[in-house]
């Protein structure tokens, strides 16, 4: 069921920018505002946020982690520290577990 929902209507998390939009919704932003905010911070258009090919490039450029386990690329807390910087937000575990 989870996968079916994902295929039907999901942004697809770290494959695109779904995790970033989710972070902004957790701050109370509604979907449109959250997408605009993330697109602005990433320097892309809103439609590109759901484009796997484009977002893989952007995520690699910004070193904010991708779905691929690329050698040398930021993962886990290091990637989340970069996400915090790019989105200009605090991510609690980055400070606590650093």
């Amino acid at each position: 069921m989870t996968v079916a929902h994902g295929m039907a209507s999901g942004m697809h998390g770290v494959r695109t920018a779904g995790d970033l939009v989710m972070r902004m919704e957790m701050k109370g932003m509604r979907l449109g505002e959250a997408k605009e905010y993330v697109a602005g911070k990433l320097g892309v258009g809103v439609p590109e946020l759901s484009d796997e090919y484009r977002m893989k490039e952007v995520r690699e450029e910004l070193d904010i982690g991708t779905v691929m386990a690329m050698p040398g690329a930021a993962k886990g807390l290091r990637a989340k520290a970069n996400i915090a910087e790019v989105l200009d937000i605090k991510i609690p575990c980055v400070d606590i577990l650093r």
């Binding site: 069921m1 989870t2 079916a4 929902h5 994902g6 295929m7 039907a8 209507s9 999901g10 942004m11 697809h12 779904g18 939009v21 989710m22 919704e25 979907l31 809103v46 439609p47 759901s50 484009d51």
Partner: peptide, 30 residues
């Protein structure tokens, strides 16, 4: 068999179940 929204209309998922759908073994978690 599978329906979907247009790419720019996609939404994000939060959950009250998540990984339980893989390792849980009870009906309410599927």
């Amino acid at each position: 068999r599978v329906a979907s929204v247009e790419p720019e209309d996609t939404v994000v998922f939060s959950t009250d179940n998540g990984y339980h759908s893989l390792y849980g073994n009870f009906s309410e978690a599927g």
